Simulated assay, not measured.
Amino acid sequence: MGNQGTGYDPELYAKRASSFGAVAAEYAAHRPDYPAAAIQWALAPAAARTTQLHVLDLAAGTGKLTRGLLALGHRVTAVEPDPAMLDELRRQAPQAAALNGSAEDIPLPDASVDAVVVGQAIHWFDQDKALPEIARVLRPGGALATLSNAEDDRVPWVAGAGDVSPTQVSYLGWATSPGRRIEPHPDFSVAVDADFPHAMRRTVESLVATVATHSHILVMEEAEREAVKAGLRDYLRAQPETAEGEFDLPMVTRVQRCVRSGG
C-alpha cells in the first residue's frame, strides 16, 4: 500500500524508506508472505542450471521472502540495511545468513550467488547503482527477480478500501506505478512478468494493523494516522464480506524476472 505518485518529495520518500524499523515486529506479524509458485517461477532460470541454489534476498526486511526460500530448500543470504528489521529477520529466519548492507553496496563476493530476489522493495533502490552491483554478485545465467504483493482491487470491496485508505498498492494501478519495474540494463535480459493469485487471512483489526505498517501511514502525524485507521475500520465493519470474523484479503503477487547475461 503505497506508491510515489506524481508529487514526488525526495525528503519525504527517504523518511518513508527508513520508517519500517520502528515497527519491525508488527511488520513481521502482519505483512503478507509470497506464494511458493511465485518464488519457484522467479528462480526458474537458475534452477534449470542447478537444483539447490544460493539465493540472495536483497532488502530482505523481516524475512518474509527469506522464509519462503528456505521452505523450498535453498541456501539463503539475506541483506537488509535497517538494523531493527535485520534483528527481526534473524529471529524469524535463523537458518539464513543475515548481513547488513544495501542494494547499492552488497557485502558479497563477485559471482557468489545463483539468484537475487527482491520482495516489495525494488522501488526503494537507486537502480543506476543497484543493478551493476547485483550483476557483480550474480553468476552468469543467474536470475534477478522482484516479487510484489498488491491488493486485488478488481474486487469491489477491496477497491472501496483503497478509496478509504489511499496507501493501498493497487493491482489495477500497477502499470502507472513509478519505480516498481526492473529498469533495462545491459547486464540483464529484458524483464518478463507473471502474476500469481494470493490471499491473506485477516480480521478487521488485523487488516488495519497491516495497513498501519505501510510507509505512507508511518510518516503521518499521529492524529492523521489514527483518522485513516478509524476510517478503514468503519468501512470494513460496514461491508458484508468483512464485517464479522475472519475473511480473505484477495491479492496478486506480481513477479518480474530477468537473467544475468554471459551464461
Rank of each mutant, 00 (worst) to 15 (best):
R180M: 10
V158F: 14
D153T: 00
R180L: 08
V164S: 07
G141I: 09
A191F: 01
S215K: 09
D163V: 10
L138H: 11
V211K: 06
P178H: 07
T176A: 12
R202L: 08
S165Q: 14
D193N: 10
D153R: 00
S177P: 00
V204Q: 10
H198T: 03
P156E: 14
T203H: 06
T176L: 03
S215T: 05
S189T: 15
A159F: 07
R180N: 11
D163W: 05
H216L: 09
E151K: 00
L147R: 03
H185K: 09
L218S: 05
H198C: 01
V219F: 09
I134G: 04
S189H: 02
P156S: 10
I182M: 10
E151M: 09
I182Y: 01
D153A: 06
A209S: 13
T167C: 08
L144K: 04
S148L: 07
S170W: 08
R136F: 01
S170D: 05
T203C: 07
A191D: 05
V211E: 06
S189G: 08
D163K: 14
T167Y: 03
D153K: 00
A161E: 08
W157M: 13
G179F: 12
T146L: 11
P156K: 06
T176R: 15
T146E: 09
W174E: 09
H214K: 11
M200L: 13
V158T: 08
G179H: 01
A159R: 12
A150I: 00
T203R: 04
E205F: 02
D152N: 15
S165V: 12
P184M: 03
A191H: 03
D195G: 08
A135F: 00
A175W: 01
V208C: 14
M220H: 07
R180Q: 12
G179V: 09
V158D: 15
V164N: 14
P166F: 09
A135L: 06
P186R: 04
V164I: 15
S170E: 10
L207G: 01
M200W: 00
R201P: 02
H216I: 00
E183S: 13
A135R: 06
S170C: 10
A145Q: 11
P132H: 06
G142S: 12
A161D: 13
S165K: 09
P156T: 12
D163T: 09
V208Q: 12
D163F: 01
